[in-house]
Write a protein that binds this DNA or RNA. Sequence first.
DNA 1: AGCATTTCTTGACATAGGTTAAGTATCCTT
DNA 2: AAGGATACTTAACCTATGTCAAGAAATGCT
Lengths: 192, 192
Amino acid sequence: MAQTLFQKLYSHPLMTPQDLDEIASLHQRMVLSKNDMLLQEGKTANAYYLVEKGLIRFFVHDLDGNEITTQFICENEIANEVSSLFQRLPSVQNIQSVTDAVVWKIEFNDFQHLYHSMESIREWGREWMSRQLFQTQQRSIEMITHSASMRYLQLIEHRPQIVQQAPLKQIASYLGIADTSLSRIRKEMITN
Amino acid sequence: MAQTLFQKLYSHPLMTPQDLDEIASLHQRMVLSKNDMLLQEGKTANAYYLVEKGLIRFFVHDLDGNEITTQFICENEIANEVSSLFQRLPSVQNIQSVTDAVVWKIEFNDFQHLYHSMESIREWGREWMSRQLFQTQQRSIEMITHSASMRYLQLIEHRPQIVQQAPLKQIASYLGIADTSLSRIRKEMITN
DNA sequence: AGCATTTCTTGACATAGGTTAAGTATCCTT
DNA sequence: AAGGATACTTAACCTATGTCAAGAAATGCT
């Protein structure tokens, strides 16, 4: 049931059941097919999404036009292109469903109203962004300190949904390696 | 004069001169010597710092105990270990002056009061965090898509203060390469 | 000023991961 | 079910960067 999704994702010490109801009432359920686009580069984000079911990814294009997957959003996580949504700027990122999916959408204007009228969601929002920043920094650090195969092993361990549902090419670009290299790493993991 | 520092760093459409005065009055000037620690890993951050003069860095320790510089904070930028300060958690990062420096400190409690009483700083804060997130993501992407020498060239071009003031070893770990490799890259840049 | 420490450079060698290209398997579409 | 596109694997070869070790240069300390 979706109620538990909101409870899980909007959890914060200051959050009351009434706050949660008000927040939830502003979300709208959406059913996505595989490869549906939720945001395209060049456009300004107008909403963010709670992922109930399925897998979502963020990607950018590099100088040669190749897609680089920059984030995977799993079930019970939030897909939000913060710098476009909150700075009202055109996005460099794309957001796309990797699988069929069910998400709950909230519009910028509705969130904005909550943010300035409800202390709990303000604190929640700042904490959520802090966690995002932390995770993004951790990922940078791991790109520096861990080998490609270590990074793949960590992914298997900590975010198995990705390994199970995303195509190899997307996982490879997310790990910062060529797809042939990931294929080789998989092979070596089996034989050794 | 420090007034321009606050104007520059706290700029936002909603920010009034009175807001700015109130904010500025809560900052305290600090003079730092080279290598002073502003935050140590394991402790919880209780303030953030506007950098007026000098260079600051963030670093973590990897599994072998080596220091990895994760961020440089130049003049007219803000040194804030967000995930410790706003989640009230022990920091994994250290903050240290690279050179002698002058910074303006604001305590968490004072900021917290502003954040819940002043719309402009709320909006400013969210935008600042959005920009941080964007920059951190861009850095991740560049670690994937650019070679080490490209990353070094970009650093020279976009953040010359770092190249001029930080020791090679810190720059190398920031770029994700061995210090001997950076030395070689420098040499090749001169001869070619 | 002189010694110790740290920082930086250089070179020989090793290796993870990139590139290219070909083959196989899987998935869609009609 | 057939045909074409896409996804994945494999292999040969290449290159950027890592590792280690030694020396030179710069810096800091007493």
